[in-house]
Simulated scan of single mutants.
Amino acid sequence: MKSSFLRPLLEVAVVLLVVLGAARWVTGLFSKRTYVHRITAARQLRLLFWPLLAFGAGLSVLPATALGGSHTTAYEWLLACGFFLFTLVLSGPALLLFLRYWALNHATVLVFNPADNQFEVYEAGQRIAFERRDLARVERVTCSARRTFWAKYDYLTLHLADGRSLVLTSLLTDLEPLTVFLRNLPTDRPTKTWCWV
């Protein structure tokens, strides 16, 4: 009975995912390139897909083990909990980074057009007042652990001459073109195993 309910639900989810992906691809062919970067659902999904899949796989074994009732042995519980902890160790850091980056940049909008020398940052709808000449240095932090779920999480810190600093995360956009745009400024490029801001 349980599988007769889940199978149509999974089929609908797969069809919906394929249709939405195809629609996004078609609209991408006819849309012009945007220079306004904000946190979008597509970027969130790109960064969260594998960590959530791993976490869901680990989480799914606990109810399955619990449904075994009194026939479930301590060894089976140990294996289920061990698998859940393993997937939590794999996906947990990426999920924490996602939440941290979202808290930092959920109200941030980046307007970046290198062809027109346009670079503006808006926070909660208000433009943060600075010019390119006000930037003292740039810190571009990347992840050194390349084969992990959190490898795509990195950030850029803009240090202004007046002491303020702005943090732009990979949740907004790919930060490498912005780093290239600001290449004339003193740039630090540290690498960390886990890019916590």
Rank of each mutant, 00 (worst) to 15 (best):
A107D: 13
S70P: 04
R43Q: 13
A129T: 04
T142S: 05
F119Q: 02
F112G: 00
L95D: 04
Y75F: 14
T173F: 02
E11W: 15
S144Q: 03
T65F: 08
H71A: 13
Y122S: 05
W25A: 03
L85P: 03
G21S: 09
T27F: 01
L52A: 08
R33D: 11
L67K: 10
L158S: 01
W196I: 03
F112D: 00
L52P: 05
D154V: 00
K2S: 03
L178S: 01
G58I: 09
E131H: 06
R38P: 02
L67I: 11
K32T: 07
I128M: 01
A74G: 11
G92C: 11
G56V: 12
R46Q: 14
P63G: 08
L135P: 06
R132Y: 06
L6V: 10
L29D: 02
L158Q: 00
D162T: 03
S3E: 09
L62M: 07
V197W: 15
T87V: 07
C81L: 15
C81Y: 14
A124V: 02
K32R: 11
D162Y: 15
K32N: 11
V109K: 01
L96G: 02
G28A: 03
S170P: 06
A136E: 09
V15A: 12
R38L: 07
S165Q: 15
V15P: 09
T87N: 08
A41Y: 15
L20H: 13
L59W: 15
L178E: 00
S4K: 15
C81G: 04
L135V: 10
G68Y: 12
A74F: 11
P186A: 00
F181V: 04
A115M: 07
T27A: 15
C81N: 10
G163L: 15
S60Q: 07
N105I: 01
L47Q: 09
R127E: 03
Y35D: 00
N113H: 13
W102D: 13
A136V: 06
K2T: 05
V167C: 04
G163A: 15
A103F: 05
K32L: 05
R46P: 01
A13S: 07
H106V: 02
A64C: 08
R189L: 07
F119G: 00
F49Y: 07
C81P: 06
T65G: 13
Q118V: 08
F55L: 09
K32W: 04
R137Y: 10
L168E: 00
I128P: 03
T187G: 01
D162H: 15
G21F: 07
H37W: 02
R164C: 09
F5G: 03
L172N: 04
L104Q: 12
R147C: 00
T73H: 09
T191G: 03
V19H: 12
L182A: 07
A80N: 15
A124K: 05
N113P: 05
D188K: 13
T40A: 10
A94C: 08
G82F: 14
F98D: 00
L45T: 05
K2L: 06
L160S: 01
S170H: 10
V141A: 12
T187N: 09
R127M: 08
L48D: 06
L110V: 00
A41G: 05
R137N: 09
